[in-house]
Design a protein around this nucleic acid. Structure first.
Lengths: 142, 142
DNA sequence: CTCGGTGCAAAGGGTTTGCATACAT
DNA sequence: ATGTATGCAAACCCTTTGCACCGAG
């Protein structure tokens, strides 16, 4: 997804893992989230409609695990709140600075910057490009 | 500068502003930070060597103001901590996932993604590209 | 003299973690 | 039976804020 700092981009296929109702529901919540790029809290709210006693901690732990397993992707989109993305293929993001909406874009490899980084001796594992601005619905407002 | 979510990219030249020792020292700390892309706390530590009683709050407030005035830039580089950048010209970043080091790169306009966003009716104001991987010193380790 | 900036300390918001218990295997 | 995953609550980390005092203009 060309988006994340630590976290995994490829699926290291974790060790044994118990299949719990909580894990399944967290995964489903991300996969069914459409283009909303939900926050952990949004996912918690969604899952709680089915499993009212699930804790925030469990949601966070399961999101981390799913990302480590390469089953969902992390989207660091600026700001302090991490967003979660069901789309595993690399892609860029557009963020509306007014309403917070996050849109998926295609993936564009920053070839020149990657080359520059490698020229400095660095090994590049992933890249993330985020565009900031006003979305179609917000561009006329304020 | 191809890096920041909210924040300003152009310098709206703020209203009157008192020149305090604190403000000057915070600005100097960022400008003299070399390629380290310091965190607010690192800047606080630096300034405190000269002004031991300066508070974190003042550092944060001054960093925000300097950014709003376009005198320094924000670098959202993934992760929870904001980093500050004396380089105002747009440029991409490389982040080492092992040691946290942040390197400046050139600026590469994601033309195709910008076009895609505009095709969707969005107005793009800024863009940020971050590369993740192992820096030259860390690529052999672990 | 004024009122914007500062220091201090407390509050905030998102995320992580320690611990006893519940449950998948 | 075994030990991982859960729920709960407290801890953490970074950042923001309220308030009384200080000091730049």
């Amino acid at each position: 997804m060309a988006a994340d700092a630590p976290a995994a981009v490829d699926a290291p296929a974790r060790a044994i893992q118990r299949s719990t109702r909580q894990l399944a529901l967290v995964l489903a919540a991300v996969q069914d989230s459409g283009p909303t790029h939900p926050t952990a809290d949004a996912i918690w709210t969604t899952v709680r409609r089915v499993l009212p006693r699930i804790s925030r901690g469990t949601v966070y732990r399961n999101l981390q695990r799913l990302a480590a397993d390469g089953r969902i992707a992390i989207a660091h989109v600026g700001g302090r709140t991490v967003r979660w993305d069901p789309t595993l293929a690399p892609h860029d993001h557009f963020v509306c600075e007014r309403c917070g909406r996050v849109d998926d874009l295609g993936s564009e490899l920053p070839a020149a910057s990657v080359a520059a980084a490698e020229r400095s001796g660095h090994r590049v594992r992933a890249h993330a490009t985020v565009l900031y601005g006003r979305c179609a619905s917000c561009r006329t407002i304020a």
